[in-house]
C-alpha cells in the first residue's frame, strides 16, 4: 500500500462531491439534536458504528474484489431510505468520475459501464482503492473517515461551530474509528466464503427517518 495514495483519496478536497452532503447533520441540527461539539460527537459516534461500519465493510469488500453488483444490492438492502440510496448513488457516480480521471483502470471503466447512473459510493470507493493500489483496510479507513468528517465539517457551516472543536471531534473518535475498520475488514474477508450476508447491517433509525424529511425541504444547504 502507498500511504501517499491513501492521503490523496482520503483528502476532503478530493473532488468527488462530498462537500454538498452533510451526512444527516443538517436535519439533526434543525431538529435541535446537534447544538454543540458534544452533541456533534455523539451524532458522529452513532453514525460511525452504523452507516460508517456498513460503508467500510462494503468498501473493504469491493477492494478485495467481491462482485460490485452483489455489493451494490447489499448496500440497497442496508439503506431502506430511498433518499439515502439516491444520495449514495449520486456520490458513487461523482466519485467514479474523479477516480477514473485520477487512477485510470479497466475495472473502473467497467463499473461505469455497468452502473451508468452510479453505484453505491462505498462500492465505488473500494474499487477506487484497488485502482490506486490500496488495500481493504485503506478503503475502510476512507469510509469511516468520511462518515465522521462529513457531518463534522458540515456542522461548522451549519452552526458556525468552532472548526477546531469540530476537528477535535474527529480526532477523539479516531481510536473507535480504527476498531470499526478492523470489524469491517474482518467481515469483508468473510464475504468470499459466506457471501454478502456476512457484511454488517448496523442501522440508525433516525438517520433514515430524518433523511426522508430532509429530502422534502425546499430550503436547505446540503443535498443530504
Amino acid at each position: 500500500m502507498s500511504r501517499s495514495a491513501l492521503l490523496v483519496l482520503a483528502d476532503g478536497r478530493f473532488p468527488a462531491g462530498g462537500h454538498a452532503h452533510s451526512g444527516g447533520a443538517e436535519a439533526a441540527v434543525a431538529a435541535g439534536r446537534i447544538t454543540d461539539a458534544a452533541s456533534l460527537e455523539d451524532f458522529c459516534r452513532g453514525r460511525l458504528h452504523t452507516t460508517g461500519l456498513v460503508s467500510a465493510a462494503l468498501a473493504a469488500s469491493a477492494a478485495l474484489g467481491a462482485d460490485p453488483a452483489e455489493l451494490d444490492a447489499a448496500a440497497d438492502a442496508r439503506t431502506p431510505s430511498p433518499a439515502l440510496r439516491t444520495a449514495a448513488r449520486r456520490l458513487g457516480r461523482q466519485l467514479l468520475r474523479a477516480a477514473r480521471a485520477t487512477w485510470p483502470s479497466d475495472e473502473l471503466d467497467g463499473l461505469a459501464r455497468r452502473f451508468p447512473k452510479g453505484a453505491h459510493q462505498p462500492v465505488v470507493l473500494g474499487l477506487t482503492a484497488r485502482a490506486a493500489g490500496l488495500g481493504p483496510a485503506d478503503a475502510a479507513h476512507c469510509a469511516v473517515h468520511e462518515s465522521v468528517s462529513g457531518p463534522a465539517t458540515a456542522t461548522v457551516r451549519l452552526l458556525g461551530l468552532d472548526p477546531f472543536d469540530a476537528t477535535a471531534v474527529s480526532a477523539r473518535l479516531a481510536p473507535e474509528a480504527d476498531r470499526v475498520v478492523e470489524r469491517a475488514v474482518d467481515a469483508a474477508r468473510r464475504v468470499a466464503g459466506e457471501g454478502v450476508d456476512a457484511l454488517p447491517a448496523a442501522s440508525a433509525p433516525l438517520l433514515e427517518i430524518l433523511a426522508e424529511a430532509h429530502a422534502g425541504w425546499s430550503v436547505r444547504l446540503f443535498a443530504s
Binding site: P15, R93, Q94, L95, F222
Partner: peptide
C-alpha cells in the same frame, strides 16, 4: 445543490455539475 459553497461546485469539485 452546492452544500453552501457554490464556488466549490463550479471550481474545486465540479463532479455534481458535470453530472
Amino acid at each position: 445543490e452546492t452544500g453552501a459553497c457554490p464556488h466549490t461546485a463550479i471550481r474545486d469539485d465540479i463532479s455534481a455539475n458535470l453530472e
